[in-house]
Nucleic acid binder design. Structure first.
Length: 822
RNA sequence: AGGCACGUAGCUCAGUUUUGGUUAGAGCGUUACGUUGACACCGUAGAGGUCGGCGGUUCGAGUCCGCCCGUGCCUACCA
């Protein structure tokens, strides 16, 4: 047997990858009749320059489970997708090429996006392949490809038919940097330093009416003043008019119970939408509309002399003018929370423009009920979901005033503006490229000329359909009854409110079911200080470098240390520790391999032989480990499965069993032949099972060992399609387990005694005398040969007096050093 | 402000639910010693913890309950 002295991942990993590709073991076979385990895995964004070990971590964690399920006998449906469209990609392209959508044609912009999409996909794919992520690349989708486009458009049409989609013209949260509407789910909060300004408006009798605002640039948008109805200070003002400083027009003074009496003066201005509260009062009281921003966030006509200024400049100018007019009474620094766009951190404003909405608010209860039906792992993450659903305030705005995304299957009547939604048979369609079918007439007015919808869909409108994209829901040859609902969704916690929630809502409305049965939530890989890895902090650890230095298996080992759903700090020493496990495994397997050949290099035939107590001990322990590891893997607790296997392998198999059994091979003349056989057989069995138990975590080295040592002519082609070990409860031998514990206690005592005398552990003992009560001695007596072998004792005797304590109090030892043999 | 997690050895983390139960574990680091018949990418042994704090339940609490302190994340702020 040709067994390399050292394991070299740099050589083995690419070769093994080629082997996997050639054998096609990760391909989904639709003809396979075994139960299917299908995985809805996150399609990463194109902006690949942000990849760090945290990404490697979360994808690896999900993949441990997939590899386990594959070995456990499931037919695996494991696709990868790429989230190529929508704002994330557009923002990435704008940043990289230092452009924005106003400075480039739609066509050129889309061309750049497609180009970056291809680049990004390649970087990702290279990394996933290097990591050994066992997806079936033939199942790959992109959220901009015809399949996803058709699926998204079918979703739109279906929801539209259900009356769940409407076009509404109302105030909408808006990002002026990106020039588009955004949905509630895309708004994050940020703490901002600001200034609270006390400004004197002019009361009906010319008196000062002081309001406090952080947004003085909105004064020209002011449409009303408000006080609390209980506030007696202002009772006489209600219904009267106040005059706006600088802009010189009048607004009515109204009441609303939401106005806090104790904030500032208790008097507030309400503008055409500085925030949600303004919108609320505007709707309730049908206030005037004074929209002052144009679509790029500069002030418009109503701002008079401040027209065309940015909000920031207008704020300064207006404050200066107010001060000169003596109307700025007080300024105070405050920090407050504002909503910002998650893609660019720009504070969110309100704007008024027609948008497409998916109604959500009327179905909160049903979404919450769906949440309860999901198997959340870990369970507590359901609260992230429920909290979000309960806190929903707006329906889902799905239209974006952008270029690169899935087009709406919609045209408008040129004459009356009524929308004409495509029929499902027309999908996929880009209305900019294609008109409605010949002879189509407007249902409202009968006119036959249409103009295309130019907006594109929110990227989540598409990615919320990944289970349905995978199942080819929009196509005749779909896999709906085979893979849908999918078995599992894997993702990190930060996109519960977006990807997860929207996917649940979509499946609820399209198929009246959950999209999947289980959800497995991963944590984040953090830097050494526990901070999130980010480019700006410079605490990035690129996974390629780690793989190059330690191998993919070592990086995966680090990933497997994080318990399910918890964050994990990245320390190179943990990766290095993975390397250590690999080295140990390599050497242990090498030792096993050595015993499989005779002196002439001929392969020995393995027979169970006559197992000794210690052979039965390690076999029994193995059965327990298999049972526990399997239990953990079934619960997606991969970290515990690996840990228990690793500990068993190191401390019981290597440190004790191999040390005990090796004497049989070095001095076979001291043992019965079938005892030597039993040792050989047990070594092989246990090591093979350990290799299999570790295969999901460290797939490369285990594959290599399987091919070199454990693959027989009639075995499966790869360890990764071999059978996951089955625990055999009947073969757990309680007597042997107890005996093994006693033996290790004696051995540890002998080792300590030698260490105290500063002699080599191999140094022979003339006599090892075990002293304990008769009951214990009875249990220990059958171990005599193994004990002598392990402690390198010429003679093992029982009974009498001893002075070396062991870990089991009742056992004491008397030892006598022998001559060192040369 | 509310919600959810977390707080265990110098460091990084298990263990806390299902099941409360003798001296609380691992790896790294550290100390001493050893070593070339799987492995120096090594072995053996040692030192190291009032399990964030206080109180409660219990024969018994790292584990269950209450309160508090600290950290992180999520959600939300009264302009």
């Amino acid at each position: 047997m040709d067994f390399p002295k050292r394991y070299n991942p740099t050589e083995v990993e690419p070769r093994t990858r080629r082997f996997w590709n050639e054998t096609g073991i990760y391909k989904f076979n639709p003809e396979d009749k075994r139960p299917i385990f299908s995985v809805d895995t996150p399609p990463p964004y194109v902006s690949s320059d942000h990849l760090h070990v945290g990404h490697a971590m979360s994808y690896s964690q999900a993949e441990f489970i997939v590899r386990y399920k594959r070995m456990a006998g499931f037919s695996i449906f494991y696709p990868m997708g790429f989230d190529d469209n929508g704002l994330p990609t557009e923002r990435f392209v704008e940043k990289k090429h230092k452009i924005n959508k106003s400075k480039i044609t739609r066509e050129d912009f889309i061309k750049l996006c497609l180009e970056e999409t291809r680049n990004g996909a390649k970087v990702y794919r290279d990394l996933w392949e290097a990591l050994g992520i066992s997806v079936d690349w033939d199942l790959t989708y992109s959220t901009i490809d015809p399949r996803s486009t058709a699926t998204s458009q079918k979703s739109f049409c279906d929801l539209h038919r259900q009356g769940r989609i409407q076009r509404r013209d109302e105030p909408i949260t808006w990002c002026y940097k990106c020039g588009t509407s955004v949905a509630q789910a895309e708004i994050e909060t940020a703490e901002l330093e600001s200034q609270l300004n006390d400004i004197a408006f002019i009361g009906p009798d010319g008196e000062d009416l002081i309001i406090s605002t952080t947004r003085p640039e909105l004064i020209p948008a002011c449409v009303s003043l408000y006080v609390n109805p209980e506030d007696e200070r202002y009772a006489n003002l209600i219904g009267k008019k106040a005059r706006i400083p600088l802009f010189d027009y009048e607004v009515e003074i109204r009441t609303h119970p939401d106005v806090a009496v104790d904030f500032g003066t208790g008097l507030m201005m309400v503008c055409t939408w500085g925030d949600m509260e303004d919108v609320k009062k505007w709707k309730e009281h049908r206030l005037d509309t004074r929209a002052i921003f144009n679509s790029w966030g500069k002030l418009g006509e109503l701002a008079g002399p401040y027209e065309n200024m940015t909000a920031q400049n207008a704020r300064k100018a207006i404050l200066k003018d107010l001060e000169e007019a003596g109307r700025l009474k007080k300024q105070e620094k405050i920090s407050h929370i504002v909503g910002v766009h998650d893609r660019c951190d720009t504070p969110i404003e309100f704007n008024h423009s027609p948008q497409w909405f998916v109604s959500l608010l009327d179905k909160k209860d049903e979404y919450l009920a769906r949440g309860e039906q999901i198997n959340w792992r870990p369970g507590h993450f359901i609260s992230r979901y429920s909290d979000w659903v309960e806190g929903l305030k707006w329906d889902w705005c799905i239209s974006r005033q952008r270029f690169y995304g899935v087009p709406f299957p919609v045209w408008y009547c040129e004459k009356c503006g009524a929308p004409r939604v495509a029929d499902e048979s027309e999908l996929p369609v880009d209305p900019l490229m294609k008109s409605p079918p010949q002879g189509t007439k407007c249902v409202a007015c009968g006119h036959d000329v249409f103009v295309p919808e130019k907006d594109v869909m929110d990227t989540w409108m598409t990615s919320s359909l990944t289970p349905l994209i995978n199942a080819r829901w929009a196509f005749d040859d779909n896999l709906m009854d085979r893979i849908y609902p999918m078995s599992i969704r894997v993702q990190a916690f930060e996109i519960i409110r977006t990807w997860l929630f929207y996917t649940v809502a979509k499946s609820h409305h399209h198929t009246d079911s959950l999209p999947w049965e289980d959800v497995m939530i991963s944590g984040w890989g953090l830097d050494e200080k526990g901070r999130k890895m980010s480019k700006s902090l410079g605490n990035y650890v690129p996974p390629e470098q780690v793989i190059e230095k330690y191998g993919a298996d070592a990086l995966r080992y680090w990933s497997a240390r994080a318990t399910l759903g918890n964050d994990l700090r990245y320390h190179e020493r943990d990766v290095s520790n993975g390397k250590r496990l690999m080295t140990k495994l390599w050497n242990a397997a090498k030792f096993v391999a050595m015993q499989l050949e005779d002196e002439n290099g001929e392969k020995r035939s393995l027979t169970p032989g006559a197992p000794t107590t210690i052979d039965r001990w390690i076999q029994s322990r193995l059965q327990q480990v298999i049972a526990e590891a399997t239990k953990y893997m079934d619960r997606y607790e991969y970290s515990h499965a690996m840990e228990i296997t690793e500990r068993f392998f190191f401390t019981e198999f290597c440190d004790n069993y191999i040390e005990i059994v090796k004497e049989r091979f070095w001095n076979p003349e001291n043992f019965e032949a079938d005892v030597v056989d039993a040792g050989r057989w047990t070594l092989y069995e246990v090591c093979e099972k350990v290799v299999k138990l570790l295969a999901p975590f460290i797939p490369y080295i285990t594959e290599e060992l399987y091919q070199i040592v454990f693959r027989a002519d009639d075995s499966p082609v790869s360890v990764h399609v071999s059978d996951w070990p089955k625990a055999d409860a009947d073969s757990v031998d309680e007597t042997a387990l107890e005996a093994g514990r006693l033996l290790i206690a004696v051995l540890t005592g002998a080792r300590r005694w030698k260490t105290d005398r500063q002699v080599n552990q191999n140094h022979p003992l003339k006599i090892l005398r075990v002293c304990a009560d008769d009951k214990l001695l009875e249990k220990l007596r059958p171990l005599s040969a193994d004990l002598g072998a392990a402690a390198h004792a010429d003679a093992v005797e029982f009974g009498g007096e001893g002075d070396v304590g062991t870990e089991i109090e009742e056992i004491r030892l008397a030892l006598e050093l022998g001559e060192k043999k040369k």
